[in-house]
Design a protein around this nucleic acid. Structure first.
Length: 657
DNA sequence: TTAGGGTTAG
């Protein structure tokens, strides 16, 4: 498209000496002193020079363009625009800074158009301070200049700065445009303090309605996404349902909202609706990633396979995020080998693909294999990301590989220059805590340079539950009740610890606190996929039409297994009840109902696959081990943390979970 | 001149 002109710097027309701008004394740019004879011809050909520079930029020949620039007395706005663009294409910050200094020296310091380009440029290089400097030095700040800085700050995660600047813009009477709204909505979630900014987001939503932008698909889609990120699913769906115009992006945003907020069933339902009711809408790779996430969350293997087929038919199977999501989907549906096969068939892999595989092995309890894959990734020259360490440390934790985990944790900064984040500390606390090294876990928290967040305290409390440590549990829960006052799970964990220690006063106190704050325990729930449908069970499920049949089967199996040595672990019932009543309660656990359903509804040789929303209780674990031997059935249970693969009376977790 | 949805973990 662009004609190639080979730049002949030595023969090129030279500018007249009088037209040559004086470089400022501070400017490092060297203007070539040209002889007067050459300068005469140059006076008329500066437009050609500009064209030549522009052409070189378009060809990606930045170095030659810059050389020629030093001979050009009157670069135009367009020349600078293309130079700036070229610097980002070439990923050269040094050249970008040179162009910036050059345009300042040539009197373009108040050019608002170039100011927006410079802000975008510095945003690209991650130099937000420089972007802000350009903004501050620009006197006439058009909405374009504001929007450019909003975009830069939002991308950089400085949401609060955007919102304070936005307030100032409003007070100066500068009206927002449709672009401003998308940036400031995104700014509300590009920050750490989500609670206060949700209120701000709602205010901006009101402004959008007042300005009559509710029919604008970009803005409303951003609104759906903002509410999704705050976890306000009902608000997101309200906005979505009222959108007069929806496109594939809006549908994808709403599907992602469900998938990301623990509502995978609704995500799949909405995807079905999108396919059925809108035949002119074609789902794309982004849509498919969320749909795969939903299948993974539900362990819906058959659905996942159908989606995989669709992805192949649509030719979306060469897109990296889609393949990574496929690897995860298969692994989380219990088909680790299929996940590995998808990974093996990839032409190219990025760090995310590797992370998918590492965590897949981790969740199945193959810690050593996960470390091997991590090492292989490094050997192949792929640098680990912070998430690689979350994945591999998590794998160590599931497999009880404490020493290996400690070495990896230390290597993060030493070898790879990655500072451990709160997530990594949470992994370490989990790793040590599960291994009953609770004092060491507590020491890690005390020595942390970062503020330990809810994840860290939650890991400690979870470990205290496993090993029944009241003292540390009280320490952790006191912090958790401050940080997450509405997370019912924390209260339940502490109550369980008190109950197991026989401290019934403590149980009463915590339950009272739970009630006073209007919170409820999340009921145990298990899912199973059969005949391409997903069946869900809750504990002591009175509304299930098959409950009597399932219960009768469980009583029969339990009685027979007791003769073979199964002893019901009634201690998991944390109520002051008699043994018989406790036994009745544990037999009604959702996971056992799902196992019974699986025994009735799966064919011979077909494994039973169950998903559970909580950690597997000791009795269900022991019961399922017995069942797998007693009925000669393979049973895969994915609890909230990991997989348990029961076969012939043994579990893959080695009773460590 | 500028804009919306996604990948891996917990």
């Amino acid at each position: 498209m662009w004609a190639f002109h080979s730049p002949q710097i030595t023969q090129s027309p030279s500018p007249h000496a009088t037209h040559l701008p004086r470089p400022s004394p501070k400017s490092p740019i060297c203007f070539v002193n040209l002889n007067p004879a050459a300068a005469v011809t140059a006076a008329t050909s500066t437009s050609n020079n500009n064209e030549l520079i522009q052409s070189l930029c378009k060809q990606g020949n930045l170095k030659q363009a810059l050389k020629l620039l030093s001979h050009e007395p009157q670069p135009t706005q367009h020349t600078y625009e293309l130079l700036i663009l070229s610097c980002t294409h070439q990923n050269s910050l040094l050249d970008a800074q040179l162009v910036h200094r050059h345009l300042l020296a040539n009197g373009f310091d108040q050019d608002t158009f170039l100011a927006t380009k410079l802000i975008n440029m510095y945003s690209f290089f991650g130099s937000l301070r420089d972007a802000r400097k350009v903004f501050d030095k620009t006197q006439k700040r058009t909405i374009y200049v504001y929007n450019a800085l909003f975009r830069a700050l939002t991308l950089g995660g400085h949401g609060e700065e955007v919102l304070s600047l936005y307030r100032r813009m409003n007070s100066l009477g500068i009206p927002s445009d449709r672009f401003t709204f998308t940036y400031v909505l995104k700014a509300c979630v590009a920050s750490d303090c989500l609670i206060s900014l949700l209120k701000k987001g709602k205010e901006i939503h009101a402004q959008i309605l007042r300005r009559g932008y509710e029919a604008h698909v970009h803005i409303t889609t951003t609104l759906v996404d903002m509410y999704a990120r705050f976890g306000c699913v009902s608000y997101a769906s309200l906005v979505f349902n009222e959108m007069p115009v929806k496109n594939v992006v809006s549908w994808s945003a709403m599907i992602a909202c469900y998938a990301k907020n623990g509502r995978p069933f609704e995500a799949l339902e909405l995807f079905g609706e999108m396919m059925l009711e809108n035949q002119d809408l074609c789902p794309n790779s982004v849509t498919m990633v969320s749909v795969l996430q939903a299948c993974a969350a539900l362990a819906a293997l058959e659905q996942g396979r159908l989606i995989h087929g669709y992805i192949l038919r649509r030719g979306l199977d060469n897109i990296l995020p889609v393949i990574s999501a496929l690897v995860t989907m298969y692994a989380r549906c219990g088909k680790l080998e299929l996940g590995q096969r998808v990974f093996d068939q990839m032409d190219k892999r990025d760090v995310v693909s590797w992370n998918s595989l590492i965590s897949s092995y981790g969740v199945h309890g193959f810690g050593k294999k996960a470390i091997q894959i991590f090492d292989e990734m490094i050997r192949q020259g792929v640098l680990p990301s912070p998430i690689s360490f979350v994945s591999v440390l998590g794998a160590c934790s599931h497999a009880g590989l404490v020493e290996e985990g400690k070495i990896l944790f230390q290597s993060m900064h030493k070898k790879y220059g990655i500072y451990p984040s709160v997530e990594h500390y949470a992994c370490m606390v989990d790793l040590l805590g599960r291994a009953n090294r609770l004092e060491e876990a507590a020491k890690i928290i005390q020595d942390m340079r970062l503020e330990p967040g809810p994840k860290v305290w939650g890991s400690l409390l979870g470990s205290c539950r496993i090993h029944c440590n009241v003292e540390l549990a009280e320490w952790a829960s006191a912090r958790l009740f401050e940080l997450e006052p509405t997370n019912a799970g924390n209260y339940v964990l502490l109550a369980d610890i008190y109950a197991e220690a026989g401290m019934w006063d403590g149980v009463k106190r915590v339950k009272k606190l739970l009630g006073a704050r209007g919170l409820q325990k999340v009921p145990g729930r298990s899912w199973i996929e059969a005949k391409r449908k997903i069946f869900s069970f809750v504990s002591v499920d009175e509304f299930n039409p098959q409950i009597e049949q399932l219960h009768a089967l469980l009583v029969k199996l339990s009685t027979e297994m007791k003769e073979k040595g199964y002893v019901p672990q009634t201690k998991v019932v944390l109520y002051d009840l008699d043994a018989e009543e406790k036994e009745r309660i544990i037999l009604g656990h959702s996971e056992k109902l799902a196992v019974a359903f699986g025994l009735i509804n799966t064919s011979h040789g077909e494994p039973i696959r169950i998903t559970k929303n909580l950690r597997l209780c000791e009795d269900c674990h022991s019961f399922t081990k017995f069942i797998s031997k007693f009925t000669n059935k393979e049973i895969l249970v994915r609890d909230v943390n990991r997989f348990h693969h029961f076969r012939d009376g043994v579990c893959s977790c080695g009773d460590y979970w």
